[in-house]
Amino acid sequence: MEDFRFANCGLRIEPAAVPLRHLSLMAKLSKTNRTIWGLWLVNCWLAAVLVFFIYSRVANSGLLHRRGAGRLAQAASLANAPVVVHTEDTPPRRP
């Protein structure tokens, strides 16, 4: 187990004196661990920016609209809704 040193006050805490479970989350993370967390944060950020850009570019190109999602969107449009005429065979539903 390694020593902890709070960056701002320079207070040195012996590992034996303060059990880990009493420290806050940030203090639990050693500098190395924080770097790893930061690294993963950067990785996730970059990956998210990249993936969402590619997805949005593809979506914008209209490629996705030729598939199922496009038909659903078309069906949801009031402009494309069929004119429904009720007949004797298909009486209107009562509320």
Binding site: L39, V42, N43, L46, L50, F53
Partner: peptide, 24 residues
Amino acid sequence: QILQRTNWTARMLVQAVIATSVAH
């Protein structure tokens, strides 16, 4: 900054982002 201080995963991502941005 990322290229200097991080591991290969981040470096690959940086290069992918730059390549995508430049190519597009």
